[in-house]
């Protein structure tokens, strides 16, 4: 019974997203993976005017058997630098994905909420303590790091030159590019500290 309802509802929601006017503009899109209705791929665009502008962010969506009585399990498949998203795992801290879920919400409305969350972070309810701390105390460095991550992971057009230089400098020392990007970001772009984390001792 429950499985049936989850499947039929997801089918209807897929149709709804396809019908909706946002999908024509490419703001949100949704597709079933391997024809399965319990694992979907969502795509949202970075909201204009935010550091994520121009980026394409993929969402990994799992539908529980009890759906729509339990919320969908959603995390970012694209790496994001955001106070309410884990920079390591992509887990999202959003109330409607937990206690405030209601069956009347749809994957489309949830994805639009996640997109809105990208545009207006809530630093008081953080998922990633490092990012949230930076958001509060060093806002411009946060904006730059978020834009840099949107460029390298989500294909946003503009990069940040200073950060490109620092990464290139450390990659020349023989470290992996992705490790360098992560560790520089987690250490506030302090090359010394990042080096210490990458090659302790």
């Amino acid at each position: 019974m429950a499985t049936n309802m989850a499947n039929t509802r997801i089918q209807r929601e897929l149709a709804e997203v396809a019908r909706a006017s946002d999908s024509e503009k490419g703001i949100v899109s949704l597709e079933a993976l391997d024809g399965r209705l319990d694992h979907l791929l969502g795509v949202i665009m970075g909201p204009p005017g935010s550091p994520y502008d121009g980026g394409t962010f993929k969402l990994d969506i799992h539908i529980p058997v009890e759906y729509p009585f339990k919320p969908p399990i959603i995390k970012f498949a694209t790496k994001v630098w955001h106070p309410n998203v884990s920079s390591a795992s992509g887990a999202i801290c959003l109330d409607i994905l937990k206690t405030n879920w209601a069956a009347a919400m749809t994957l489309r409305t949830v994805m639009i909420s996640i997109q809105a969350l990208l545009g207006s972070p809530v630093a008081d309810d953080p998922q990633d303590a490092i990012v949230a701390g930076q958001f509060k105390s060093q806002r411009s460095l946060f904006d730059q790091t978020a834009r840099y991550w949107a460029h390298i992971h989500a294909g946003a057009p503009t990069s940040v030159a200073v950060m490109d230089q620092k990464v290139a400098q450390m990659v020349q020392m023989g470290f992996r590019e992705s490790d360098v990007q992560d560790n520089l970001s987690w250490n506030g772009w302090d090359v010394e500290k990042a080096l210490e984390k990458l090659a302790p001792g």
């Binding site: 309802m5 039929t8 509802r9 209807r12 709804e16 729509p68 069956a103």
Partner: peptide, 10 residues
């Protein structure tokens, strides 16, 4: 005529 269930969306 155009009512829709907010749980199952039928």
């Amino acid at each position: 005529l155009d009512r829709q269930c907010w749980v199952c969306f039928a």
